[in-house]
């Protein structure tokens, strides 16, 4: 299943109350997300795509594009 990057950007923007985020933005470094924001983003992703991104995967998810790639992997595997 192909995940639309615009949808993932929207999830991140809604959680962070941000606008103008881009796929290459780092969620913490560039967009200033706190740990609690990450929990909110992942909960929204889990709910929208009916997947579960494991905590152990988090070190590899730095950018919005990384998050979209992880969602794609999970939806393809599911």
């Amino acid at each position: 299943m192909s995940v639309k990057i615009e949808d993932v950007i929207q999830i991140v923007e809604v959680q962070l109350g941000a606008t103008g985020a881009r796929a290459a933005d780092r969620i913490i470094e560039d967009l200033g997300a706190e740990s609690a924001d990450i929990v909110g983003i992942l909960a929204a992703v889990d709910a929208k795509y009916s997947i579960h991104i494991d905590e152990m995967e988090l070190p590899d998810i730095r950018t919005i594009a990384d998050l979209a790639a992880s969602i794609t992997r999970h939806t393809d595997a599911g």
């Binding site: 740990s35 609690a36 990450i38 929990v39 909110g40 494991d54």
Partner: peptide, 18 residues
């Protein structure tokens, strides 16, 4: 059990730290 705890935290909307 760690995976269950992480899921539970996410459902409750809190960090594992909290």
């Amino acid at each position: 059990e760690t995976r269950t705890l992480v899921r539970r935290c996410r459902k409750a909307g809190v960090t594992l730290n909290s």
